[in-house]
Write a protein that binds this DNA or RNA. Sequence first.
DNA 1: CTTGTAGTTTAGAATGATTATAAACTGCTT
DNA 2: AAGCAGTTTATAATCATTCTAAACTACAAG
Lengths: 139, 139
Amino acid sequence: MRHYKFHKERLRSSGLRPTKQRLAICKILFDRKETFHFTIEELKKIAEKNISLATLYNTVHAFKKSGYLKEISLKNKKTFFDTNTKNHHHFYDEELSKLIDIKNENISLNNLPEAPYGKKIKDVEILIRVANNNQKQKK
Amino acid sequence: MRHYKFHKERLRSSGLRPTKQRLAICKILFDRKETFHFTIEELKKIAEKNISLATLYNTVHAFKKSGYLKEISLKNKKTFFDTNTKNHHHFYDEELSKLIDIKNENISLNNLPEAPYGKKIKDVEILIRVANNNQKQKK
DNA sequence: CTTGTAGTTTAGAATGATTATAAACTGCTT
DNA sequence: AAGCAGTTTATAATCATTCTAAACTACAAG
């Protein structure tokens, strides 16, 4: 469990005042050993009725802007965020709407293609869709 | 330019009657040499006022279900579709909201990780975000 | 060629995630 | 202790997408 001051520092470094709502969000997101993948809706549930939706959106986006959270591309309508901001990739279980980290040593992309003329590669995202073994192809 | 019958066949094989709206959509989507990446909104613009939004959504989803179109995962709120249904990957230019195909021989993923227990890999999607060379990191 | 009907189209309403608004509240500097 | 910029919040607004149900149409059978 991290010290209160840790979160306060994180907030200040993002240019955010350490309010009780933001500290509560920090605790939920960052006081854990494992990576946390979540949607705003899930975060809302965990936070109970203490924090308004608008504040959740604002704070999560502020953290994203400061590089403390990563947004993940999905076909799904809901946006996922990830507390693991290091370069890594995901399995996505569409049936459970769950993301699972892929350890970096377990995947490797060789000969990355050259970016189109005048462009530069900013980011590579690999998503591996999985389903239950016994089931038919997705709908 | 493909023959009318070609589109009619495609429609029938998807269990769809060849109506004039659907044939018009087929022409837009499939009468071209290059892969076409589009959003429903863009398709709407190309189709002019001839076809209702609801029909565009219905038809595009029917084609997706039949395997004639692929849906592409993006952070963007809008959904992209791709007339290239072969296994391939994309560059995504966030500034222009444009997808660019990556030729399969230009990218290769070795030692794919094992799927989580009881799961099977259905699909691998690689998205390489690019930006103009001279510009700063994304907002 | 007419007709019946199942499949289609469509405008408009409904939904659901997200963002904007603007009034009340609060952390922090002086 | 005061004042103000930064925050929070309920609520309204927005935007893509899906639903609905009434009008329309392709097509098989006669």
